[in-house]
């Protein structure tokens, strides 16, 4: 299988462990990730908060390059994924927008391809059976809270993926790896990512609610499929603990890190030493390292 791969800006910096894990896991599964040559930033929230045309055009350029190859785009960042879907929809429903966009990008984007998120890719395109075939080490004893966040599943009218209130696909993958998924109610609560720099106090409150619920539900760690969620949840964990006088010490993994671990890759190969919340003691305790 071949799919266009759009790492997005985070995966080359703050989300490097996700990038490394994706590549290793894809290779093992026999998938060719065709990185979109010379891709540009999707614009993230600043673009759609500032203009109605800009985010569509920025994403259409990347989508157009993949469309020329006849490929859909795997977007491991939930924010990029969501913005790409919005661009596909706009180009397909608004003739005027399509004309303006194509004029701006100097290409003829037709809107015939689409974006796929990482969980959807593993669950729907690859399938649990194929994943199970590659498992070398069961992640027994690891209690995982699957955190989907907002943009992977919401709004459902746009994503048409899983369920916005109680999604299951990531849980099924984690279960297949032999880990234990906990039942908890905050799978899709917002972590406030977009306000991380301009209004940090919001992040402390929202992430505190998420971690305290995960902890109360018995989780050892969280797993996400988004570098923005992952960064936001780990980066301010120490500040959150201080602000609310609590202790979480809870790493947040990307889904492909856990898949990679069960495929037999070492934590180091998967970039697990690059986390802001150390993964070392948990990996040691569960005998994964």
């Amino acid at each position: 299988m071949k799919i266009a791969y759009y790492p997005g800006c985070s995966l080359e910096s703050t989300g490097i462990e996700y990038h490394l894990s994706n590549k290793l896991v894809a290779k093992k599964l026999g998938v060719e990730l065709w990185e979109i040559p010379d891709w540009n930033c999707c614009g993230a929230s600043p673009a759609h908060q500032s203009d109605l045309f800009l985010p569509i055009a920025l994403n259409a350029r990347n989508l157009a390059i993949a469309e020329e190859e006849g490929l859909d785009v795997l977007a491991p960042c939930a924010a990029c994924y969501n913005r790409m879907l919005a661009a596909v929809e706009a180009v397909n429903t608004d003739e005027d927008m399509r004309a303006k966009v194509n004029d701006a990008i100097g290409r003829d984007y037709k809107g015939t391809n689409t974006a796929v998120n990482m969980v959807e890719f593993l669950h729907d395109k690859i399938g649990i059976d194929k994943i199970t075939e590659q498992i070398q080490k069961k992640l027994s004893g690891l209690k995982v809270a699957c955190y989907y966040g907002c943009l992977l599943v919401k709004p459902p009218a746009l994503t048409k993926f899983d369920n916005p209130e109680n999604p299951q696909t990531m849980d099924r993958i984690v279960d297949a790896l032999g880990a234990e998924t906990i039942v908890w109610p905050y799978k899709t609560e917002c972590c406030g990512g977009g306000l991380a720099i301009s209004k940090t106090e919001v992040i402390l409150k929202l992430t505190n609610e998420i971690f305290s619920m995960a902890q109360a539900s018995g989780a050892d760690c969280l797993v996400t499929a988004c570098p923005m969620c992952q960064l936001n949840l780990e980066l301010r964990q120490a500040a959150t603990e201080k602000e609310y006088n609590v202790k979480y010490n809870m790493p947040v993994f990307e889904i492909t890190e856990l898949v990679g671990l069960s495929f037999g890759f070492s934590p180091k190969e998967l970039g697990m030493h690059k986390h802001f919340v150390s993964t070392a003691s948990l990996l040691k305790e569960k005998q994964f390292a």
Binding site: E12, D38, W39, N40, D51, F53, L54, A57, L58, R61, K100, D103, A104, I105, G106
Partner: peptide, 20 residues
Amino acid sequence: HLIKGRKEVANIFKKMREMK
């Protein structure tokens, strides 16, 4: 990281400003 197509990206911003 400077992409090769940054002129294309700059052009998107230019069109946006023209439309505004």
